[in-house]
Computed example of a mutant assay.
Amino acid sequence: MNSMVHKEWYLINEVEQLDSPALVFYKERITENIAILTKSISSLSRLRPHVKTHKNAEITRLLLEAGITKFKCATIAEAEMLGICGVPDVLLAYQPVGPKIDRFIQLIRSYPETFFSCVIDNTFSLQAIALAALSAGVKVGLFLDLNGGMNRTGILAGEDALKLYLQADLEKGVEMRGLHVYDGHIHDADLSIRKEKAAAVLVPVRELSRQIVENGLPQPVIIAGGTPTFPVYAEMEDLECSPGTFIFWDKGYQDAFAEQQYLPAALVLTRVISLTDATKITVDLGHKSVAAENVLQKRVYFLNAPFAKMISQSEEHLVLELEAGHGFRIGDVLYGLPVHICPTVALYGSASIVDQHQVTAQWKIISRERKITI
């Protein structure tokens, strides 16, 4: 009879063996999310997932096993992790400046089986990277970083962008590969609105691409978007897509982007450490254990305490209010779904891996560090 009792997906057998707070990855759900992703696009060659969410070698290898060969990252450590895994094609979607240029060149020399690219949006950076590459005897792939409205980095698609692209094509030591546009400002819950805004972003980008070809250069690769606009760009055969959060999903994206059916696959585990009063409990999930950039009520959602209200949070404590008679006792475990999983993962050195309710391994969050070896 007991074998017929439903068991919630997130519950962990012998959970008392896990110290808290802990980061937990559910392997079967990660595998399912990869399958959902690969089925949602016409060709795996158009996928370039961002590794900033998981920062993990084992997950990278799962993606490689699924047939994905191109990846995107934001730090030298993430790029090195991809090199360690033998990824064929890596884009550092960050313009290296100062010592990062030398580190990037060292990375290229250390992992010759991987072709590394980075982005540029100005002449100074172009010339500095080209000079470093030429001096080291390596070839650096370059993508022109375009400002699609986020107003963070990038050059506006237009006359100046064309001039910079053509100038870069003449530089020795570098190889222009295409255009990169990130649209993180587009995160409307309504998919039709996201489609309209994404279409507007692409108009000048495609025009720039046309002008590049008109000037006798090869058709540039266009890398566009993140997770919110992935369903839009996945339908456009001329684009590479770079979702990242899909691998774990989180409460924020689960609520905002209902058309995407990925499964929550990473949780934070916490314990009751104090019964503060008749309606309040304190757990060991502070700022250091879950991303705290959002307002207090938008940091974590507890699967086994869905009506818990967050009262206060400090470095090592989180105070929750529940109804009287809530039944929680000292040492009880709460399973938290972060609202923003990417920076939450970066708070942990390793994750416990759960498969069929059992903890089976520990995976290091290897590229949470600013430096692995380079």
Results as ranks from 00 to 15, higher is better:
5 V>E: 04
8 E>K: 13
8 E>R: 12
21 P>Y: 13
23 L>I: 12
25 F>N: 01
28 E>A: 14
29 R>L: 15
35 A>K: 13
35 A>R: 12
36 I>T: 13
38 T>K: 07
42 S>Q: 14
44 L>W: 01
44 L>K: 12
50 H>C: 12
52 K>Y: 10
60 T>H: 03
60 T>D: 02
63 L>M: 14
64 L>H: 08
65 E>V: 05
66 A>V: 00
69 T>D: 14
70 K>I: 00
71 F>W: 09
84 I>R: 13
88 P>S: 06
92 L>Y: 09
106 Q>P: 03
116 F>V: 09
117 S>D: 04
124 F>V: 14
124 F>W: 09
125 S>R: 04
127 Q>H: 05
129 I>P: 08
132 A>K: 10
138 V>D: 07
140 V>K: 07
141 G>V: 00
143 F>M: 05
147 N>R: 05
151 N>K: 07
160 D>Y: 09
163 K>E: 14
168 A>E: 02
169 D>N: 10
172 K>C: 06
176 M>L: 07
177 R>N: 11
179 L>S: 11
179 L>K: 07
180 H>R: 09
199 A>I: 01
206 R>K: 13
211 Q>M: 01
214 E>W: 05
221 V>R: 07
221 V>K: 02
224 A>K: 00
225 G>D: 07
226 G>M: 11
244 G>Y: 05
255 D>L: 14
255 D>F: 08
258 A>T: 13
261 Q>N: 03
263 L>R: 10
264 P>V: 08
267 L>N: 05
268 V>C: 12
269 L>E: 06
270 T>Y: 05
272 V>P: 04
283 V>Q: 04
286 G>R: 06
300 V>N: 02
306 P>N: 11
314 S>K: 06
314 S>P: 08
323 E>F: 12
323 E>L: 11
324 A>I: 05
328 F>K: 00
330 I>D: 09
333 V>M: 05
337 L>T: 10
338 P>N: 13
339 V>F: 15
353 I>R: 03
355 D>T: 12
357 H>S: 11
363 W>G: 09
366 I>G: 09
368 R>P: 00
371 K>Y: 09
